[in-house]
Design a protein around this nucleic acid. Sequence first.
DNA 1: GAGCCAGTTGATCACTTGATCAATAAGCCC
DNA 2: GGGCTTATTGATCAAGTGATCAACTGGCTC
Lengths: 211, 211
Amino acid sequence: MSTLPSRAKRKSGPERAAEIARTAREIARYDGLDAITLRAIAARIGVTPALVSHYEPSTEGLVATTFGAIAGAELAEITRELSALPSSVEALRALIDTLLGPDRSTVTTVWLDAWSVGRRNLALAREVGVQMDAWQAFLVALLNRGCARGEFAVADSGALAWQLLAIIDGINAHAVVRYGDARGQRDLVRSVAEHELGLPAGALAPAPAPA
Amino acid sequence: MSTLPSRAKRKSGPERAAEIARTAREIARYDGLDAITLRAIAARIGVTPALVSHYEPSTEGLVATTFGAIAGAELAEITRELSALPSSVEALRALIDTLLGPDRSTVTTVWLDAWSVGRRNLALAREVGVQMDAWQAFLVALLNRGCARGEFAVADSGALAWQLLAIIDGINAHAVVRYGDARGQRDLVRSVAEHELGLPAGALAPAPAPA
DNA sequence: GAGCCAGTTGATCACTTGATCAATAAGCCC
DNA sequence: GGGCTTATTGATCAAGTGATCAACTGGCTC
């Protein structure tokens, strides 16, 4: 027999709420921010749309929260990864490699959705601003740390951070449409960063695999 | 008396079709690509949704066409403006100024919409590719012309064109959210172009207003 | 084991979307 | 001016959206 539409197993409130949030993130990554729907979430969990609505009274808010969670999670992960690296130059190199690496397209598409949908969703627009500021602050801190350590010098770390992020976002946006070209473009970000930081050419080149 | 919903004045086929296309472009610029709706267009023209559907059997196709028209019109206009300039350096300078100038946000938002909506609209996705290729081809031609004239030198004009376009798109995307910062970022594009083309620093700086 | 709180449901609204089709009428041609 | 081509309409469908609410029931507490 096929599984009858039996009653969903009863879960604790926070548990169900977490499941809904997680499902929303999955949908956003796979099908886009505006595929987040009461019914889409409910169907995937095996639950009634009304239940989703019960935990998330505003779908617009859920979309904003979901975007913030995805963007924030990536920033948190990268922060963790880079913190293990000994020098700021290495951290910057790793940052560029990661942000322009393969398998980032799912996050990039979420950002593209956010920029577009944000015009109709105030909460989302606000969250986009928050996440952009968070990324810029993170990069500013990285640059300032490198300056303090004497690894490089920068006149206006705030402006440079915005510039590097803009280049990265532009390249990734292009890569979503014309996939595969992002790799060749990584050199651009590297050379701009090297130039602006007074680093020798090639300082941010990826470390050659140990022979 | 308020205007009764009288029957719309009968127009020739091509005329009405042009009116619909124009209206779709207006809606796209003001409210986004996904505000293009049978009813939105019909209401603005003062006509029945069925009539719009009659001229545009597929709304998805209309969205793709509309995007192509907006992007193509801008490229055509810029092509015309730059053709009047005597040198390639001046053309490049004017291009950067225009693409990062004020009042470009309406076109930028349409591009952002296109990148996002293109994932659910195959025709639109194709049109996005076409327009991106057209822009790159235009810039490649500009760069090659400058090389042929001996104004500057470039190793891989195709790659450089993609890079400059990516930077511009990234900056503009950011500007949609945090408006006002685009102006300060123009210098980045200029310095990258100068560096890659072997031009002296400041060669692409905007001409000072005549005293 | 009785009772009650809270998770869950089903039904249902109001709204928006794209699309179709027979019926109507406006304007052009002879 | 009669007739015919074609622009235009009104009605209507099916699908999908967010949201609400009374009713049901699972499982924990006493």
